[in-house]
Amino acid sequence: MARFAVGDRVRVHKQFPPTPPSHIRTPYYVRGHAGVVERICGAFRNPEELAFGRDGAPEIPLYRVRFRQKDLWSDYEGHEDDKIDIEIFEFWLDQAEGSEGETA
């Protein structure tokens, strides 16, 4: 059961992963930033476990989260509305404050 719905504003955890070795699929450039859930992709085995030969169960909801480029890069040169859509697993996300900004 997915915790977030399309249009929800979410924030990506900022912390660096725990003790190495670790394998994560959440790039540094979105960590700590807020975006909007664009779609729910389904549930998939956890790559952070699969990377170490474990079974990756249980499956975890995967979202596509849409960020405004201007929010990610303070010096972004380009259109105000330019975006990045990126896949993020649920355990990296928290509900974000407010609902300002656009909806997906």
Partner: peptide, 26 residues
């Protein structure tokens, strides 16, 4: 936009560029 320009692709200023980062299963 700078990368696209290097590929010879100029996107109008008022047209949104949407980058899709393929980080997981899609």
């Amino acid at each position: 936009r700078a990368v696209l320009r290097e590929f010879g692709t100029e996107i109008a200023d008022n047209r949104e560029v949407r980058v899709h980062d393929s980080t997981a299963d899609m």
